[in-house]
Each structure stands twice: as C-alpha cells, then as structure tokens.
C-alpha cells in the first residue's frame, strides 16, 4: 500500500521539502550574482528586513489591509449574491454564469481589464467621470487610489467564489426553522441575523480562513495593476520578496523575506484556525 503514495511522495519531497531547506540555507548566506562564494552571514538578512522601514511601514500594513478588506468585502458581496441566486427564476443559470466569470478567468486578465477600465484617459470610468463633469483621476499615480483599485479587483475576482460556496450552504439549510420563524413573525432582517447567519457560520468560518491565507500571498493582481508602485507605496509581501530577489538579484535577502512572510502567515493562520474552529463549534 505504501506504493500508492510513493510517486506523490517523491515529487513532494523534491519540489516542496528540498526547496524549503534550500531557501532556508540561502537566507543565511550572502547569495548574490557577484558573490560566487555565497558567504555565511547568519541573521544579517533577517535583521535587515526587520529593520527595513519600507517593509515595516508599507509592506506589512498593505498586506494585512489588503487581506482584511478583500476578505471582508468579498464575504459581504458573496452573501448578497448568494441570497440573490437562492431562488427560482427564469435566467437563474445565466446570472450564475455571469457571476462565475470573474472567478474563472485569470487574475492577470482581470487585473488587465481593471487597468483598462480605470485608464485615466480612455477608460470607461474616465469617460463616465467626464460625463458627470469630474476631471480625470490618475488612479494608478497615487497611493490610495491605486490601493483602492487593487482591492476592488481582488473583490471582483473573489466575490463569486464566496457567492457560490455560500449559495451551496444556503441550499443545504433545513427549511423548517425558516418556516417556524415565519410563523414566529420574525422579520426579514431578524431572520437573516438570527437564523441564516448563525446557521451559515461554519461555512463562513471555513471560507474566511481559506481566503485569508490566499489573500495574504496575493501577487498577480498587484503586480499587473501597480507593480507595487507608485514608488513602492502599494507593495505587498509577495511583491517585496519578488523585487528583492529578481529585481535586486539578492537571493539571500529575498529568501529571508520569504521565510519571514511564511512564518507570519503560519502564525496568523494557526490563530485563525483556532478561532474559526470555535466559531463553527458555537454555531453547531
């Protein structure tokens, strides 16, 4: 029976465990193109990054803010869309298709689309602003507008995911408590807050956990939309690591950044896992 997992095991070891060891090794060395000796430097890279004001004051806050806002907004949007789809109407399939599309197309394309939509001269938003009488806004030339577009795009991509999973959750809820609530004269909002939400809590907890871990490592959307700019103001953890490694060509420092990020997310995810478990348990 061990044979069954042998092929998977080999690939796993070679391309997951070996790289981690490799990366850990690199993070303690001066591993740059012009230093073939790869001198052991100990914790120098770690100390550098933990003292880097860009990392501490821009990259980390950006990463957490992006994670928090993207997950919260997609969850709210997803709940609304799930309720919208949770009924029988002609065209339900069509609407579900439309809602699914952003999740299905590549994030790279999604980000490109948004870049075009928010193009400060020819984008549809610029045309609309012009029509209502506002001057053009250079969305991607300032920090907060750029960040807003990054979050908007991420929410656009991930709301469908929440919607579809929550819809499945809604469909699996028993019908009787809702009928009892109808007889008990619970209003629409009270039914939602006192019945739907508590009953969906386990599903929501799992969704938020998975999505938070994913959002923490967002790369493609930010890379295409802003590249971390203007002037590194929208850099998130993945971009920072990438830039250190492949733009500055400092593998040692990049590896150290990668490991710091991995440790942060492991701790955060571990804590969230505990909370999610308790939340799901309360609802049961």
């Amino acid at each position: 029976m061990l044979l069954l997992i042998a092929p998977a095991g080999i690939v796993l070891v070679l391309f997951q465990i070996v790289p981690i060891v490799f990366g850990a090794n690199a993070s303690f060395r001066d591993w740059q193109l012009f230093n073939p000796a790869q001198t052991w430097v100990g914790l120098k890279h770690y100390l550098y990054i933990l003292g880097d004001s860009t990392f501490l004051t821009i990259v980390l806050p950006n990463t957490f803010l992006l994670t928090f806002l993207s997950v919260t907004l997609s969850l709210i949007g997803g709940l609304a869309l799930a309720h919208y789809l949770h009924r029988n109407f002609a065209g339900q399939w069509l609407m579900q298709t439309i809602i699914l599309l952003p999740q299905m197309i590549a994030p790279v394309i999604g980000a490109m689309m948004m870049r075009w939509v928010f193009n400060d001269q020819f984008g549809v938003v610029a045309a609309f602003l012009d029509w209502v009488g506002f001057g053009p806004i250079s969305w991607l030339a300032q920090r907060w507008p750029s960040f807003f577009i990054v979050i908007l795009t991420d929410v656009w991509i991930w709301t469908p995911w929440f919607a579809l999973i929550l819809l499945a959750g809604l469909r699996s809820l028993p019908r009787e408590p809702f009928e009892a609530a109808q007889i008990d004269a619970a209003g629409a909002w009270r039914t939602f807050t006192h019945l739907t939400l508590p009953m969906l809590r386990p599903v929501i907890a799992v969704c938020v956990l998975i999505r938070s871990i994913d959002a923490f490592r967002t790369f493609d959307v930010v890379w295409i939309l802003t590249g971390g700019g203007p002037a590194r103001s929208t850099e998130v953890f993945s971009i920072y690591t990438y830039v250190e490694t492949f733009v500055n060509l400092d593998f040692g420092r990049g590896s150290a950044a990668a490991i710091i990020g991995a440790l942060i997310i492991l701790v955060v995810a571990g804590a969230m896992y505990k909370v999610a478990g308790r939340v799901a348990d309360v609802a049961r």
Partner: peptide, 13 residues
Amino acid sequence: VPYISWVLPLYLV
C-alpha cells in the same frame, strides 16, 4: 506557505 516563499528556492532548485 505563501507561494512566493516557495517558488524562490524552487527557482534555485
């Protein structure tokens, strides 16, 4: 594990 933390050493490997 964030992909970036992993793809870097993967590149070296």
